[in-house]
Nucleic acid binder design. Structure first.
Lengths: 155, 155
DNA sequence: TGTGAAATTTAATGGCG
DNA sequence: CGCCATTAAATTTCACA
């Protein structure tokens, strides 16, 4: 069940975490592998499911979506499917997680303005009571893999 | 202040959002531009700050961090700097956002097990009362740009 | 801004330790 | 598993529109 990664894998994850567009050749150079081996490693990480996706981080505030919010939701269980469907009609919702506790879902959305938020709340309120918080800023966190690879014993 | 994107830009963001490793040549092919033009566009999006980062999404549960949690935090303002420093000592915290409302910070962490969580709470509790929720699952959301590009008028 | 073309670098494959 | 070598493809740069 648990996948064991060696220091090559951790180094690759560290590099791709910072820049997913690095070429295999450059990855190889940086970690001391040939380009073929580096490529095999990356593909293997994808095949094993460790890397779920190569994506981008977007600054939505620059393109007109300057109201980022967190929405906490309670909902009635019988409407769950319909409710999720409603959520997915809103592409402004960039992520949605089911969690334990008083609120069942925590969603993040990027909205244009207050009336955009109002519209979103109007559609959600049928299914439960949404609690909205404005996301003021992000606190930068270090690369997960930078600190974890150092815990590995040399092989 | 607001950056206006055309349909080429939206198409590029849509593509890179799904696969950040697409080659410029392929991007160009898919949206009807030469590779040079496609590359210019991507670089311009990065330079203007719209694309903040090319990164990866990792399945941490596969590599031993099978307890994903959301932590809501209240803290005393006088300790804010020290508090953030504490947070950044924990690379298991993958994101941290300052929000309005009763709780000032919402952090996400990937932990190994309950004792790992206990250790994290022990270090955070000095600064305020953390409220922990287990992240049960993620609800898949559609690509933000897929639905937004269709709203553009042809130029 | 976009295109096209030439030189350099990478990607992809297959065979070998 | 990783390295090397080869062919195909992509990147980079630049002149031109």
């Amino acid at each position: 069940m648990k996948i064991v990664l060696d220091h090559y894998d951790y180094n690759i994850l560290e590099l791709l975490n910072d820049n997913a567009r690095l070429s295999y050749a450059e990855i190889g150079r940086l970690i001391g592998l040939s380009q073929s081996a580096a490529k095999e490693r990356v593909i293997s990480l994808v095949d094993r499911g460790v890397i779920k996706k190569f994506g981008i981080e977007v600054d939505y505030s620059l393109i007109g979506y300057s109201l980022p919010v967190l929405i906490h939701l309670k909902f009635r269980n019988d409407d769950f499917k319909i409710f999720l469907n409603q959520l997915q009609q809103f592409p402004e919702i960039t992520s949605c997680k089911r969690v334990t506790g008083e609120y069942c879902l925590v969603a993040e959305a990027v909205l244009k303005d207050n009336s955009h938020l109002e519209h979103l709340i109007d559609r959600l309120i049928r299914y439960g009571i949404p609690s909205t918080a404005i996301r003021l800023s992000e606190v930068g966190m270090p690369n997960f893999f930078t600190l974890h690879k150092s815990k590995l014993k040399k092989s």
